[in-house]
Nucleic acid binder design. Structure first.
Lengths: 330, 330
DNA sequence: CTGAAAGCGCTTACAG
DNA sequence: CTGAAAGCGCTTACAG
């Protein structure tokens, strides 16, 4: 592989000049620029990224922190981020944290050492100090959705509470008289918001109390188990808001096993808008988040922050919408 | 951040000595080792990974080339790989190629520049030259499954043809009289193998001809569309082998819409063993590949190749098994 | 506009 | 067993 030295020698200039030309820094005679560029092409020279990182403390690398890529929400997000990253010549580190504090700190440490240019954070168990530490080390970050978002840096959120209200309201509108919720983990910001949205709509009904709330963990299996729990507690349940689509898919299975007709005897609405909800039987109504776009927007904002280190952070809150499908149409 | 210089100064030795101690290379008096290690701990010194890469031409980084992480097969694989990588302090570059030649070559180039230590390849549109080029540049690679596998380097495959036979044979055993297949893309090795497995079992029946083969692209949607095609061509079809699970999920939807009872009027078997097949209605029988394990094994082999550069490649062919579920039980 | 020189933080023959 | 020195391939003040 040709190095900057080879190019400099062949062009009869110093490596400094070549470096400047490559990076469009400082000035150079049109003639030297032309000559150097010709040699670069001739030699097929590519600047060594690692050497560059060492001096510049940049790496052309972005890290993506997610709980686990196995949850179908995150691949979609990752694609959005990666597609844009690619266009900018950035590579992506995939970091599965399982929302565990230990893995989070390990990653953060290792990413700092590698001079990553920025981090997209969509994992629990990071705190304000982590994010401040990143920024004071010159590593911009953006939190997405699930991440702790009371910091002063950039973030993208979705209107979880409003989405949950849309869902619950819809169930009421189609005539459900007893509506339960399968909520997500207690330490998860989005889960809490969605639960409040549900409560907003049902809290004034006589029948409502805590027992209509089942505690899931956002997995298909927990949706299944929680639904069984709800059936047992409330044989008269005729509507459920699953606070994510995976749990909706799980509860659909429970409904089939329990012999409840969906939507006639049990109406269902999920949350997220993952692809699979179109293909279940029946297809599941859901509150759609613009997942792919969120990945893309996060990357966009990160690139902006990298290029304008002292610019103001941006806080975005996105709308969601209700996608009507068979599981709730009656 | 403390550098190796700081450690050396404080310990009263040269940076060379510190380096040797960190890397367990050459020898050193127990006393110096102890002293240096104490200082390292005291200063919280961590070797700079980037500087290390520059001299060693290693990066503690592995790349994972997949068509797209949005297909639920790959996140599972990625987790397997990542979990092991993590244990070895390796980070993972996620590379979505969309099986496009252009993206593949871009990635390969950029990964070479970054001194990645190894590449797990599960993408189409790489050829023997690419892989040889990698190896001659000292970058070990391992191909998985879908990747072109006639090279002489390490690879992991699954018994696709045998799996397809298992699936088709099973459909015959449960009494299907007219069995179609939704096959995968023509340039995909696994798709071709699975098609042959199907043919092995049906080729001698009077009814069999090309029209029982529908050409899908491994997406849910194509499963759906292909099934409609088969229904139209062959109203008497009573069994289908979908050559991956996503297409099986799609065809299930078509069956519901067409009003065919599964499994009584139409028995279905998929391929892959992705999680979602447990949660469809009815649950889908499938040929299970050990996806997570394959990711893990690939990483294991890669680590072996990195540590023993001149060792022989290993070619592994894994067994698959038939998971019986409702979609084919009659 | 351009070059010499130092430096980024390591590693590794080579001597001793 | 240990150190001085060169080198990995770049970038960036500093001079001129």
């Amino acid at each position: 592989m040709a190095t900057i030295r080879d190019v400099a020698a062949k062009a009869g200039v110093s490596t400094a000049t070549v470096s400047r030309i490559i990076n469009n820094k400082g000035q150079a005679t049109p003639e030297t620029v032309a000559r150097v560029n010709a040699i670069i092409k001739e030699l097929g020279y590519k600047p060594n990224v690692v050497a560059r990182s060492l001096t510049s403390r940049k790496s052309n690398t972005i890290a993506l922190l997610v709980p686990t890529i196995s949850n179908p929400f995150f691949p979609e997000l990752a694609r959005g981020a990666e597609d844009l990253a690619n266009a900018y010549g950035l590579n992506i580190f995939l970091c599965n944290t399982d929302d565990e504090r230990g893995k989070v700190t390990n990653y953060l440490q290792s990413l700092k050492e590698r001079y990553v240019d920025g981090i997209i954070i969509n994992s629990l168990n990071l705190n304000n100090e982590d994010i401040e530490d990143l920024h004071s080390n010159g590593i911009p970050s953006i939190t997405l959705d699930r991440a702790f978002a009371t910091h002063e840096f950039s973030s993208i959120t979705v209107k979880h509470r409003e989405g949950a209200r849309l869902a619950t309201k819809h169930l009421i509108d189609v005539g459900c008289k007893r509506i339960g919720i399968i909520r997500g983990p207690e330490d998860d910001f989005t889960a809490v918001q969605r639960m409040w949205g549900y409560r907003d709509c049902v809290k004034d009904f006589d029948w409502f109390n805590q027992s209509w709330i089942a505690l899931g963990d956002f997995s298909v299996k927990s949706g299944y188990l929680c639904m069984k729990e709800l059936f047992q507690r409330h044989p008269d349940i005729d509507g459920v808001f699953a606070s994510n689509d995976l749990m909706a898919i799980g509860l659909l299975k429970a409904a089939h096993e329990w012999g409840r007709k969906v939507p006639d005897e049990l109406a269902i609405v999920g949350f997220d808008g993952i692809d699979m909800t179109q293909y279940t039987y029946p297809p599941i109504s859901t509150i759609r988040q613009p997942i792919y776009e969120m990945g893309k927007m996060a990357m966009e904002e990160l690139i902006r922050l990298i290029n304008e280190p002292n610019s103001d952070p941006s806080k975005v809150e996105l709308d969601v919408d209700l996608i009507l499908r068979e599981s709730s149409m009656r």
